[in-house]
Design a binder for these strands. Structure first.
Lengths: 239, 239
DNA sequence: GACACGAATGGAACGCCGTTCCAAGACGAT
DNA sequence: ATCGTCTTGGAACGGCGTTCCATTCGTGTC
């Protein structure tokens, strides 16, 4: 018997870029959980099986989408005057990209060897080299910065899981922070002096400022590392 | 009609601690993916439905398991002489715990407001206060350290996903690192000078040393922060 | 001691997922 | 025109977290 219910075949062929773009759009507009091969197939007016001819797996798809966006960030950082500036630009760029596409956080922290991460390490490492961090410490320093960024990434990822896109993000964030601060205030005071102190300023804090504050601490640490190395060379400026 | 196939009811009652312990044991011995409510029910000789009377969801279960283990780490750090020592002990403790129970990494990075994370922030924050970091910067500093630790956590989590437990971990790690280094060496040299340099030392590096190196950088940054604040008080020692 | 009733139990069922399979169309080379 | 290869898309598979619910146990009340 013939299947007369079979739908028409598409005329224009599918392509990986096309699929990746559709995936990014779904992720941005409907959140991480909304990206399924069924949903993607519906949006591209095809079947889920067809997608597997262009994309090896869901992880492959997510890695490709993430790499697209991270590549854009590292390109920006490459054109800064001083290495410290470049490092800050890179950090800011990652922050803003995570803000706009928070699902990237999940992907970045899923596999530290994916190309998007290699891109970031390369970019960070080049700046650390130019900063004059001594050779053997360069790798440590670069991975420390990378770890810090990945930590940020996972925070953004769970923020996105908490409030999927659509609603007024800033309002939701405000409510959520207030409720967390309230919960923290109910904790045993003698065991949680710090957290209870923090709870007071939590609702008013600025994520971005806080992140850049962290970057500043690390940059200071790197400077200190370099100066200690220079001390060894007899170039102690403080004497 | 009566169902004669129905199995016997258990005599000793279930409890949340019992369930959490069984979950930890499965996670440690068979890996993250092996923990399913079906597997857990089989191991505890019960049905999956019964578990939901003691545990709200899988996330709840994972959070409870993680909190158990993290609480142990923060308790250790609390009894150190100097705050810098305590910070290092905390970091070392987290590292070693992640090494033994790498699935914790996934859980920690899933939800930054779970109690295990609050425990860590409190512990970090107390040390940062004693270090004399100026008030307004304390929160930034604590979350920076937390971010760094979460970054480490996510790296461990994906290591665990890469090689589920059972096999010879160190041998597998060695092979994996060598293959990654080899892949990095095939990258376009002009665009990846740093990563290709790193590839040479990658197979021989020590994760733990590297992590502690990162902690050192951050501690240096914190010292620098404190000294700048003291400068403002006229206590500049370098003049 | 009989009874009622809430809590605990455990197995079946639901809805969804990523992935695989494969019959059927499209199309270039011969 | 015919064949072989690549692409398509829908159905099917196995497994997941979770929900549902008939059954059973333990306990307080009369």
């Amino acid at each position: 018997m013939t299947l007369d219910t079979r739908t028409e075949r598409r005329t224009a062929p599918l392509s990986k870029t096309q699929i990746v773009e559709a995936a990014i759009s779904i992720l941005d507009r409907e959140g991480e959980d909304a990206l399924t091969f069924r949903a993607l197939a519906t949006r591209l007016v095809t079947g889920s099986g067809a997608l597997y001819h262009h994309v090896a797996s869901k992880d492959d798809l997510l890695a490709a989408a993430t790499d697209d966006l991270i590549a854009h960030v590292t390109r920006q950082a490459a054109s800064e005057a001083t290495p410290e500036q470049a490092l800050r630009t890179l950090a800011r760029g990652v922050f803003d990209t995570l803000q706009r596409h928070p699902w990237i956080g999940s992907v970045l922290s899923r596999d530290p060897w994916q190309y998007a991460v290699v891109r970031l390490i390369e970019s960070i490492g080049q700046q650390i080299q130019s900063m004059g961090v001594p050779g053997p410490a360069q790798f440590n320093a670069a991975t420390a910065v990378m770890s810090f960024i990945l930590g940020l990434a996972s925070q953004h990822a769970s923020r996105a899981r908490l409030f999927p896109p659509g609603a007024d993000q800033t309002a939701l964030r405000d409510v959520a922070l207030r409720s967390i601060a309230a919960r923290w205030m109910t904790l045993e005071p003698s065991e949680h002096p710090f957290v209870r102190e923090v709870a007071k300023i939590l609702p008013d804090h600025d994520d971005r400022e806080q992140f850049l504050g962290g970057v500043d601490i690390i940059v200071r640490g790197l400077r200190s590392l370099r100066e200690d190395a220079m001390d060894g060379d007899g170039s102690d400026f403080c004497r």
